[in-house]
Simulated assay, not measured.
Amino acid sequence: MKTIKEKHSLLMRWTHWVNFPILTIMIWSGMLIYWASDTYTFTLFGHTFFHFFPDSFYKFFHIPSRLAEGMAFHFLFMWFFTLNGILYFFYTIFSGAWRELIPQKNSFKEAWLIVLHDLHIRRTAPPQNKYNAAQRIAYSAIIVMGFGSVITGLAIYKPVQFYWLTWICGGYHFARILHFALTIGYVLFFIIHVVQVVLAGWNNFRSVVSGFEVINEKFATQTEGNPVNDNLKPDVDHL
């Protein structure tokens, strides 16, 4: 018998889906800004082997000569990104959802076992509640990264007005490096996130859209007390 169970709240789903187009625009507009000062290269013994982004990358996405456009979009949507992040942060605090997100003392050990399971090296995965250990680490890290992006972004946006923030970030140039590294982190997280959602299946994706998931009660009865039965493994949430 299949039953419908509530899994994700409306506010969690709202902030999740709103953040996707906002972050996409932020990354795109950030690349338009970065083009004006493409300084990151791989240099060894005074010889530059390659720039982080080759010229073909800029030509393919038609990035050159769009600095003003990039700055306009970036500095507009950073407010939406910040407000959406603050809303989600305070929601997790006041709703108690942070208890399901914060990594536990065994989370890093279990996360490694989950990685081995996903690579089909380990037969069984550790038992999980709403989120597994890998998810707890990833989702907590993405919140910290969001705060880091806002802080470093303000430090390089207004280095004179926010001189104390720029100083905390290690100076203008180091703040820019951190901001750039966080952006690369978002891209990597997004790729892994999409792959894991596809692997997790339709039931998992549907729960993030509607807020509900379909549960096979016969499975729940059969696997009670044996949450890692690989022959009766349910749809599993991934990153």
Rank of each mutant, 00 (worst) to 15 (best):
T3R: 13
K233W: 07
G225E: 02
I215H: 10
Y88H: 13
I137A: 07
L116E: 06
H193D: 09
K130S: 04
G185L: 08
W164F: 15
T223R: 10
D118V: 00
F60E: 12
H16P: 03
V150F: 14
F212H: 15
K233P: 00
S65C: 03
F45I: 01
I86M: 11
K233C: 02
T166C: 08
R206G: 00
K105A: 07
A36N: 13
Y139C: 02
S56N: 07
V236Q: 03
A36K: 09
A175N: 06
M78R: 03
W112Q: 01
G185F: 04
H238W: 13
N106P: 06
T82S: 10
S207L: 00
V214W: 13
H8P: 02
Q222I: 11
Y58A: 05
R66G: 03
S210D: 08
F147D: 01
H51C: 01
V228A: 13
L76N: 11
T124A: 13
T41S: 15
L188F: 14
E100D: 15
K109N: 10
D118R: 10
M145W: 10
N203G: 07
A200L: 05
F162T: 03
T39C: 00
V198W: 11
R206D: 09
F189S: 05
A68S: 12
R136V: 01
W17T: 01
G70W: 04
H238R: 15
P126F: 02
H173R: 11
K5H: 10
S140L: 08
Y186M: 13
L119K: 01
H8S: 02
A181D: 04
N132I: 04
P103D: 08
L188G: 01
I191W: 09
E69A: 11
H120W: 12
Q104F: 08
K7G: 05
L76W: 12
F108A: 08
Q222A: 14
W28A: 12
W17E: 06
W112K: 05
K7H: 09
T24L: 15
S56L: 08
I93K: 00
F205V: 14
A111S: 09
F45Y: 11
K218F: 04
F60W: 14
F73E: 04
K109Y: 08
K130H: 01
L239E: 03
P64T: 07
A97Y: 13
P126Q: 05
N19R: 01
E213N: 01
R99I: 07
I215F: 06
G96I: 04
N106S: 14
A220S: 11
I151G: 01
N132S: 10
T152C: 07
K109G: 14
G171C: 08
D118G: 14
W202K: 15
G201K: 06
Y91M: 03
R176H: 09
F174N: 10
F147Q: 00
H8N: 11
D230S: 11
I63N: 00
I102R: 07
F53W: 13
G185W: 03
E6K: 15
H16C: 07
H47I: 12
D38W: 08
S56V: 10
T48Y: 06
F81H: 02
F190L: 12
